[in-house]
Design a binder for these strands. Structure first.
Lengths: 198, 198, 198, 198
DNA sequence: TTCTAAGCGAGACGGTACGTCCAGTCTTCGT
DNA sequence: ACGAAGACTGGACGTACCGTCTCGCTTAGAA
């Protein structure tokens, strides 16, 4: 029994408007900051009616979630340098490069939303956070396979360690997220993973 | 020559209003969530005119900063268990207890603000963040004194590791900040600190 | 080439809101007096958002100007009793009847505004004042046509005399604007018009 | 037995403040218009506390009433040119000179108040309006004494005619209040007074 | 072709909160 | 007791967005 999602009747969604809204959202966010990023401004910037935004997104949060998806969809191919620390350094270098430039305003914006809306926090967690954590988990499994890390390594703690620092620096801006940071954090994570006699 | 800050003229600030606003801010935040916490509602709850709030605070951000100061001013006395890991576990246990209960809504609220306002982010960093980091720094110094940790331990990284995870869990709520978490994080931090051959 | 005032786009103005605001303005004015007649109260009384008032009127002054236009739009048909004094008495009797009852609060309200705003005073002068003066001017021309008044009668002075007294009594309330007043003023105006050897 | 109005105790009223307020009121009124003439601005301009104004006056209305009293207190000495029309022309010339220059903003300001407050309207009527009308009444009596006008001349109507036009022109500014106007109005008033066969 | 359904730009609508201003009152210190 | 300073409650201001609701006009597949 196929689940027919009803035959598409009426005028189909205009892909130009769709794209224009996503672009406008990002543009306004970058130019004016999130506090000034209202639906009205996005609509104006996109040359689109407000209703067209509300028709397709419930609010700013899901809209920016899609913007982030657009910008961050390039599937990361996992590195394999031979050592866990090397792999992690490579992964984080790439991640941090994106996160500290293009994605930075987006992630901060989404953080604002998820801090105020439990439901949206759940959605974000299930989509973006898990995706990134999965990469690290994979590296850990790889290292366990190589017997580089103990089988009972606390994977979640390693993930928390890595992404905790990342978000912390994204929020407070007190230290950079550059290549050097990637190396240091990978080192710390490795040490923590190895010595995981909880 | 003492710096006389001008003799106090006019009617002095009413301490009752002052306290009522701080209490009301916290009450409304807890009861209705930060999204619904408007200046108007706080004023109504406090039985105070809006102007009285605007006279003393520039907006919600500085107001809640003072609320947090009130709630978090109890000076933590540093533990001395004999080992760095023990000390850190003790410190974090106390910190997490506060942060995951009373302070939780406050810290999330302030995060919302600092993510949208660079200037306020700076203020928060200089006051609260530094205060908490100072505690950890002190423990690290203690441990270095005991030759438990190398003299060139990367103190800042240790701090980032600890508070990164704390904020990360505060934001996404994907794991608790309980006694067990304190122990695990202390363990990871110790491992990272010892093995700090950057 | 007709002057196309642009095709109407977007949702058209809601005539119900329009009427509700005008009615509410009048109601509140009558019930609470002009000092208490705020835009907010009018909006509340009309069951309308404040913005809907500000969208269509610049402030209380133009709003009440339209209210007055509504109430006073019945075109007066000029009397023709055979004598100037009779005509004027008839005209003033009708005018005073309206002005001392329904229109009274409106005219006082508009006076408040025009006394504080030169620009609005100009608008009022060009619309309402001129309309009323035109009636008297027409009567004077009629009388000149009948050789009842000299050709060089100072029409403007006659208008000033008549409406001067009307406004003066509207302001200070020291004497009525009834049928008797109409007769007396018509008599005085006639005497002044005849004897106009400046 | 002297009527001691209670022995003056405490610090007596500061005449400098008193004068400063009156001056400031007039200054602000002239410089910024009545709409912008708030008690706060007057107090600031006078270098006086708001309370000092509220202690001595109930509001703007009575305050400006006193300002007007200051400016208009020069007792007019009634002219006696031999004819009613001449006398009236002389009186009005002087009155109009003051009313169309210095007193203009004050009278418009007071008109705003009395239009919104019946009680204050009464006060104004009993003081200023009556004072001015008394002058005209005296001229009429003089003329009756000279048998220039009938004994049953409608004095009140003559007053209304004269001051009606004056206020009307003050409000709408459609015609000047100059010497010429005085002459014309005196002429019209005389004609109306003579022909007063009501 | 005509009909029907939905998308779309435009913009009015009822609301809510903003941050400011002023009204009047109250409280403190100094004269 | 008066006066200057200025904090206080209260309430209206005019503006900005929210999210919803008509409008007239496409733009498609179905009849």
């Amino acid at each position: 029994m196929t689940d027919q999602p009803s035959p598409p009747r009426g005028r189909p969604r205009d892909p130009k408007s769709h794209a224009a809204v996503l672009d406008a959202a990002f543009t306004v966010l970058e130019r004016e900051g999130y506090a000034a990023t209202t639906i009205e401004r996005i609509a104006a910037q996109a040359g689109v009616a407000k209703q067209t935004i509300y028709r397709w997104w419930k609010g700013k949060a899901p809209l920016f979630m899609e913007v982030l998806a657009r910008k961050a969809n390039q599937s990361v191919q996992l590195p394999d340098t031979g050592s866990f620390q090397g792999d992690l350094t490579a992964l984080l270098t790439g991640t941090f490069a994106a996160v500290s430039t293009t994605l930075r305003p987006l992630m901060r914006a989404l953080a604002v939303e998820l801090l105020q809306d439990e439901e949206f926090a759940g959605a974000m967690r299930d989509v973006f956070v898990q995706r990134r954590r999965a990469n690290v988990r994979a590296l850990v499994q790889q290292a366990i396979g190589r017997s580089e890390l103990p089988v009972d390594t606390d994977v979640e703690l390693v993930c928390d360690l890595v992404f905790g620092i990342m978000w912390y620096r994204l929020m407070f801006d007190h230290a950079p997220l550059d290549k050097c940071a990637a190396r240091q954090i990978a080192c710390a994570a490795t040490a923590a993973a190895v010595q995981n006699n909880v």
